[in-house]
Computed example of a mutant assay.
Amino acid sequence: MNKNINHIFLFTLLFLGIFVSSQEKKKFSNIDGVLAKIVPDTKVDSWVLLHNKYGKNREVKVMGKKPDYLPQFTGFNFRPGEESFYYIASSKGGKTTYITDIRELKDFMGKIDNVEEAAIAAVLDGYLIDEQFVDVAANYYEDKTNYYLDLGKVTSKECPYQKTHYTLTVSKATGAISNVKDNGTYIEVYTKNCKNNPRLLKLEKKEEPKDDPKKQPVKTRR
């Protein structure tokens, strides 16, 4: 009897350990690392992922024999506000094709093969892998059926500039987003030009003048 109880106890501890470890959040290293995990559905002989920043090209990843390619002047941007973009040069049968558009990237990537591709698909839908705020908007955990992505989104470019973070539930089987949880705003930036800047409103707010008792009209008795 005691042996059975001990076995049940050990099994429970093992199960809880597996469950806890599966719920542990992991951080996306950076956008380069995420894009480098692309597994193309399109059959190609080789491909290279490039990052262009301020006109300078950098090879992020080369798969197979590096194809001959020409620098491109447009691409897909994963860092809003930064003058940079990514593009892919792929080769098949000696012909080089360039992937510079979000739709082309989606077709190149095809079916969701891993959590990085799930994050890329979410970015293509308007979300953000926020490298500056990894703890709230660039991490994930997973179980047998789903990926759970914590990502950001620019929700206002007006005054104030805002970013909100969400938890997306993505099916491993279909790649579809089945649930989106709004976790609230994590960045709210007011500039000097913002008329609704709380600090400016506080400075502009004047105290109402108090009545001076010396200036009160004197009441006379009749």
Rank of each mutant, 00 (worst) to 15 (best):
Y161T: 10
E59H: 06
V180D: 00
L49N: 05
I102A: 15
G75K: 05
D68P: 02
A138S: 12
D41V: 09
G75D: 00
E59P: 06
P160W: 07
N4R: 15
K92C: 12
T96C: 09
L124R: 02
K95C: 09
K205S: 15
V180N: 06
I38H: 01
D182Y: 04
L70H: 10
V180E: 07
Y98C: 02
H51N: 11
Y87F: 11
G55W: 09
K206Y: 08
T191C: 11
S178H: 11
D143N: 13
I31N: 01
K214M: 12
T100Q: 05
K65Y: 06
T167L: 12
E142T: 11
Y87P: 05
F15W: 11
G55A: 10
K206S: 13
I187P: 01
G152I: 06
Y186V: 05
I31Q: 02
K53W: 12
I112H: 01
Y166V: 03
G152W: 02
Y166A: 00
D101L: 08
I8N: 14
A118Q: 02
L151H: 04
G184E: 01
T12C: 14
K163L: 12
F85E: 10
Y186W: 03
T74S: 12
N4Y: 14
P213E: 04
A36W: 00
M1R: 13
K219G: 13
K56S: 13
S90I: 10
K3E: 13
Q216P: 09
A137I: 04
G94R: 00
G152Y: 05
V154F: 04
N77I: 06
Y166D: 03
S156M: 08
K43M: 10
V154T: 09
L105M: 06
I99H: 01
M1L: 08
P198G: 00
W47H: 09
N114P: 02
W47Q: 08
W47S: 09
I129A: 04
F78D: 00
R58F: 09
